[in-house]
Every structure is written in structure tokens, then in C-alpha cells.
Design a protein around this nucleic acid. Structure first.
Lengths: 335, 335
DNA sequence: AGGCGGATTGTGAACGCAAACATGCGTGCC
DNA sequence: GGCACGCATGTTTGCGTTCACAATCCGCCT
């Protein structure tokens, strides 16, 4: 056999017309049981697979949704993709995930969006935790439904995020509640919306308590950068409570503190963000703010399906509440 | 405008035939400069995007490679996907990543493979660290090039893996070299080829040194399961050297040891596997075996491109050498 | 002057499928 | 017994693109 069998090959083999094969394939009514089994048998014998391109071309519908994601080795983004995939399984949707990789993220994401659009994706989900994502969104034809995850309200598209602002407040208040005079914050990268919101939540909680906001060192998301910041903070006697940008940064801070002879939580209380699976096994177990990614995925898909149904873009958005996970790194203020 | 513009719309607007538009789009020669600019202008004005389905249908070529991946929140698999994406950027290939998610991995991966095939993918990459992957590979038509990553030799398809066996030996030898009488191993999940190979490397290194292989507890890949195993090992006085299935398991072990008053590396030497970015910031910094994922990605794409060129499947495979990263969890055997 | 060749453009068909329409046949009802 | 209706199936058309081929135009050689 030289080339892949097509519908008419199956039809010939089963002794019917190609349209009957099509009907069987699509579960249309008005096909007799015997015909159906004959067709099915022919399909199996020939190893026939229908050509999706032809199908999409003929129907004009593709029911695949494209996902544009970057930094997919990070815990947050990879969990998001996973959650969306999980949620899409239920709806009759297929997912095509474009992973933005490489040094030139802008060019790569343009390229991915372009392909997704040309492929006829029914809708697009942007995992857009950084500003750069907005630019490639402009490439999307105006009719196509879009949902962002961790996007910005001013983009005026449907969006779902974890309420990072609330998370920042939660963390800060928890520390303040233990009697700490103020709380230091090791911030995440400036380009990430999440780190900005967490910072604002932190500031708001401090202001609300009448506490002074100390200077704010800035880390990446990595333990390495947390460690660098921690080495500074360890030398500041006033610093007794730290809210770290995420769990890995917190790990770096813990390391720096240990090297400096500062005990956690005795000398310093620490709280992270994310609740990565291993956070409970840090030494000591990390108190942190957990994000419910699965819920975010479900919401994102819900918003997309709504747009698919109405045929119009919406700017509706959803917020998912973070929750505090108490473990061993937070204690009452040292005497 | 009701529907998306098509090639003939562009042609009409530019005052040429649709074929000329096609030529411009595909960079064919023999189009005058003035015509080209007119066409380009019309494309821009109309916001035209070509319909990939139609193109694939007409040409029979798709130049997209499908990636089938699961457990994509784990460090290894997600790094692999990233690396392959990185490598594909160079070649004129697009990537469609299907993430197997959900409770029923078998059904999900069948579905993903099916769609990738129907979509006309030019080749498939299976991130196949577990046996279950083989089953969905059987669904792929025999003509389609396949490359597995972390697959099994007996599958007889092109494969690239990190040499986990060598990694296991490396880790074990390193511990033995410090004077430990033997090395304990906390194994990874049995279904994963990588954990089996690491175990075999461990056994081989022990045998080579004439050391007895102690009983082997089995963990998942998580810190939680490492912790459980660690709680047992901590009570065994003879246990002075541990090779953990991966870094997170090692973290759990560390936690258990600390709770039990065992000091690392003074009482117990420990070595992990993977070199996750934060491994150096565990307390103490974890000595581990690093896998070069970027290299694996490059090799995988190379093998795929070769098959694409020759048009025939190969069973050629490539091994990537792991490397020992020495940090603070390994010390000479306690007196 | 005729025509030849290369550059440029247009025309018709084909890709594989699904939708709309058309056909044939049996059944129930008056 | 004839007619209408519904089921099962076949035929035709079109989706948007590319490919193979045809047609035109221009300059230049013989």
C-alpha cells in the first residue's frame, strides 16, 4: 500500500458509498446495523484514519482550543497547563499546547499564535503571567474567543487568576498576627503580574495594620535568587518576619538564614507562596499560600466555552481564592 | 465582514489571480516586485491568514511534529518538553504538544495520539518514561516516524535517554569511594524505566565493589514518599549512605533524618538524582546526578529529522551521559 | 522580420471530507 | 389498491489551498 487509505477506499471495501462511511464515522442516524458493522470492519482492516484537515476544511469547525504557554518548567505555569488539559477532557475539546521556548520569547510566541490561528483553533487560552504576552494577543483575529490566565484587567478579555493580592494580604496578616512589628517581602520578578499583586497585597496589609513597609529586595523565582536576598536580610536585626515571593525563593532564604545562624521559626518567621508539593518537607516545613490551579483551569475553560456558545468575546473574569497552609516556619514574635 | 477572508478575496483586492497570491505567500520566484507589494498590502488590509487545513490537504505535508507527554508537572518531563521545543525552533518545524492528563491516562493518550495522527503530523515524539506509553504507540500507522524519549530498547524505535544506568553507578560508586561499606537505595516507581535502570546501576556498582545489596524501599517521585522511606532508614544503624531516586525523594529523606536526629552528611551521606534547580539550596546542599535535558531534546529532534529525510523508521538510539554534581550531602564514612 | 526563451501571470483540477439534495424501497393507512 | 411517509443509501457540490499546465508579454538573437 503506497498511501494512506481514504474514505472512498473504505467505502469500496465495504461496498457502500463514501457518504455512508462518513455517516458511520460521525454517528449519524439512519444507518442500518449491518452496514455499520461492515463499514467498521473495513475501517479496521484498512487501518483507516480520517483526515482531520479535510474535515476541518469541510465543516469549518475545528473544536480544538489552543494554549499558549511559556516558562513551562516552572511549577505554576506547568500546573496551569495540566489543569486546563484536565478540564478540556470533559468538554468535547482537544488541546493544542504551544510552548514558548527559546531565547526570543516574543518571536516564538508570535509564531505559535500565528500557527494556532491558521490551524483554525476555535479559541485560545493564554497563560499570560507577564506583560510580554499582551503583544502576541494582538495578533489574534477579533472574532476568536480568548481567555487569559493570570492576565491583566486592562487587556479587556476574559481572564481568570488566583487572587494574588488577597494572597499577599493573607500572608502578611498571618505574620502580623503573630506579633511581628512589620513584615519584609522578597518580591518576585517585576514583569510578572502575580508578583506585583502579591506586593500590593503585602503593602495593603501593612498599611491596614499601621506598620511601616521596609525596603523590598527583589528576587527571581529561583532558590538561588532567594538565597542572595536572604544573605542580606540575615544581617538585619529588625527583620523577624519574611514573606517570600514563592516557595523556592523561601527555600533560598531558609538556606541563607541557616548559614547565618538564624533559626526559623525561632528567630525569623517565613512564609512562601504556591505550596509546591515538596514545601512540607523543607526543613522546617514551609508555611505557605496555596493556589488552586485545578480550579483555575476549570474556570478558564468555562469562560472559553461560554464565548464559544455565544460567539462573542467577553471580558468576564474570575478570581480564585488562595488559601493559607500553616506549617512550621511561622511563630510568634521573638521576645 | 462576516467570514474570514480567503485567498481569492485577497486576489480580487490586489487585482491578481489567487495563484499569484499563493506564490507570494510561499516565496516562489517569478513574481514581480510591484505585484508582490500589492498582494502583501491586500493581505495586510484584509487581515488575511491562510487556512492551514486547506494547505495541508493540498500539499499532503504538515511539518508539525507531535509530542505526547504525561506527568508534565514533574521536573523531568516538563524539562524534556521544553528542550524539544527549543530544539524544534531551529528546524522549520512546529510542535503540537499533547499533554496526557486526567485519571485515565491510557484513554487520554490514545485520544491524543489519534488526533495527532489524524492531524497529519509528520512525526511523533513520545516522552515515554513508563511502560504504559508503549500501548498508545501501537496506534501509530507504521509509516510515521517515531522517536521515544526514555523509551525501552525492545520497542525497536529510535530512542534517546539519559543513561540512567550509568547514573546509578556513578552515584553508588561515589558513595562507595567515601568508604561506605554499602549503599542503600530508595527506588523510584517501578513502572518507570528510569528508576529500574538506576536500580540496576546501583546493583552493578555494589557487585563490582563486592558490597552486599541491602533491602530496597520503594518511593514515588515525591518528597512525601521519600519521607516515609526515610523514617525507616533512620532507624537502621547500618545505613550510612543513601542513593535516592531523585532530588525530591532525597529531600523527604533529609527531613526524616533531621527529625530523627541523624545529621547529614556527618551520620549519613545522601545523593539525589536530577539536579533540580533548587537542589543546591536544600539544607545542606544536595549532591546529585544531573541529567542534560537540553542535549536529550537536541538528540531526539536529530533522530526525528533523520527519519523524516530518509522516510523510513529507524531504531537508532542515543544515550546522554549524566554528570555528578558534588555538594554537601556526601562525606567520608563516619568512624 | 520572425520567432524563441524566459519571466510573469492565469486556468483548471485535485486534495479528502461533510452537507445538501436526490433516490429507492418498504410499510401503514384510508 | 394507491398514496404518503420515513428509513436507508447514493450523488453532487464546495470548503481553501496548491500543483501542473497553459497563456501572455517582453526583449533579443539570428
Amino acid at each position: 500500500m503506497s498511501r494512506r487509505p481514504v474514505m472512498s477506499d473504505v467505502a469500496a471495501r465495504a461496498g457502500v458509498s463514501h457518504q455512508t462511511v462518513s455517516r458511520v464515522l460521525n454517528g449519524h442516524p439512519h444507518v442500518s446495523a449491518t452496514t455499520r458493522t461492515r463499514v467498521l470492519a473495513a475501517i479496521a482492516e484498512l487501518g483507516y484514519r480520517r483526515n482531520l484537515s479535510a474535515r476541518v476544511l469541510a465543516t469549518g469547525r475545528s473544536n480544538v482550543v489552543g494554549v499558549v504557554a511559556q516558562n513551562t518548567t516552572l511549577y505554576g505555569p506547568s500546573s496551569m497547563v495540566q489543569a486546563i488539559g484536565e478540564a478540556a477532557l470533559g468538554a468535547d475539546l482537544s488541546l493544542t499546547v504551544g510552548h514558548v521556548a527559546g531565547y526570543d520569547a516574543t518571536a516564538a510566541s508570535r509564531r505559535i499564535v500565528e500557527r494556532l490561528v491558521q490551524q483554525g483553533a476555535a479559541g485560545l487560552v493564554f497563560i499570560a503571567p507577564v506583560d510580554a504576552a499582551a503583544e502576541s494577543m494582538a495578533l489574534v483575529p477579533s472574532g476568536l474567543p480568548i481567555v487569559t490566565v493570570d492576565g491583566l484587567p486592562e487587556w479587556e478579555v476574559a481572564n481568570v487568576s488566583v487572587d494574588q493580592y488577597a494572597g499577599g494580604m493573607l500572608a502578611t496578616r498571618h505574620l502580623l498576627d503573630q506579633g511581628h512589628k512589620t513584615v519584609w517581602h522578597v518580591a518576585g520578578p517585576e514583569q510578572w503580574h502575580g508578583s506585583r499583586a502579591r506586593e500590593q497585597g503585602w503593602r495593603a496589609a501593612l498599611a491596614e495594620a499601621g506598620a511601616q513597609a521596609p525596603p523590598m529586595p527583589r528576587a527571581g523565582w529561583s532558590a538561588a535568587s532567594g538565597y542572595q536576598c536572604g544573605r542580606m536580610l540575615a544581617r538585619i536585626p529588625d527583620c523577624t518576619a519574611i514573606f517570600a515571593a514563592n516557595d523556592h525563593v523561601a527555600l533560598g532564604v531558609m538556606r541563607a538564614m541557616a548559614e547565618h545562624g538564624k533559626r526559623i521559626p525561632d528567630d525569623i518567621s517565613l512564609i512562601g507562596f504556591d505550596d509546591v508539593p515538596e514545601a512540607g518537607y523543607f526543613h522546617p516545613g514551609l508555611t505557605t499560600i496555596r493556589q488552586e490551579f485545578a480550579e483555575v483551569g476549570r474556570q478558564a475553560l468555562r469562560l472559553l466555552l461560554e464565548q464559544l456558545a455565544t460567539g462573542a468575546r467577553s471580558a468576564e473574569s474570575a478570581l480564585v481564592e488562595p488559601v493559607l497552609i500553616g506549617r512550621d516556619t511561622v511563630a510568634a514574635r521573638p521576645a
